[in-house]
Design a protein around this nucleic acid. Structure first.
Length: 139
DNA sequence: CACGGAACAT
DNA sequence: ATGTTCCGTG
């Protein structure tokens, strides 16, 4: 397979070996749910590009808790972790919209590739790339 | 709800 | 470092 020759956000390149990345990252888990149609009643892309709504906060927290073996996880705690992403420029809050956040895909793209148009394909392209990298580390 | 400080865990 | 837990503030 050929390399896309495309710069993804820094946070999309956290190698398995890097400390603090041995466990699954929350942003990765969020993308994982977003990717699966069976969770569209729980969390889904909605509104602007990169924007998603947590339709069932309790359920997302429950699933995250299962993944991390934290049975007492809840939305209060999960959302605190999401808020730490603001300064890291991974996410930001869509103000005024309840349970709505937005991935900072676009900004990174525009900074690194001013010419590149922001097609709808970028999101799926990014997800595919993350997937590929994941496989690479597993093998 | 949403925010962010602080202490703590891994 | 990346969260988890707890909590005061608006």
């Amino acid at each position: 397979s050929k390399s896309p020759g495309f710069a993804f956000p820094d946070w999309a390149y956290k190698p398995e070996s890097s400390p603090g990345s041995r466990q699954i990252q929350l942003w990765h888990f969020i993308l994982e749910l977003l990717q699966k149609e069976e969770y569209q009643g729980v969390i889904a892309w909605q509104g602007d590009y990169g924007e998603f709504v947590i339709k069932d906060p309790d359920e997302v927290a429950r699933l995250w808790g299962i993944r991390k073996c934290k049975p007492h996880m809840n939305y209060d705690k999960l959302s605190r972790a999401l808020r730490y992403y603001y300064n890291k420029r991974i996410l930001h809050k869509t103000k005024g919209k309840r349970f709505t956040y937005k991935f900072n895909f676009s900004k990174v793209v525009l900074v690194n590739y001013p010419i590149l148009d922001m097609g709808q394909n970028y999101m799926s392209f990014c997800l595919i790339c993350i997937k590929k990298r994941k496989k690479k580390y597993i093998n």
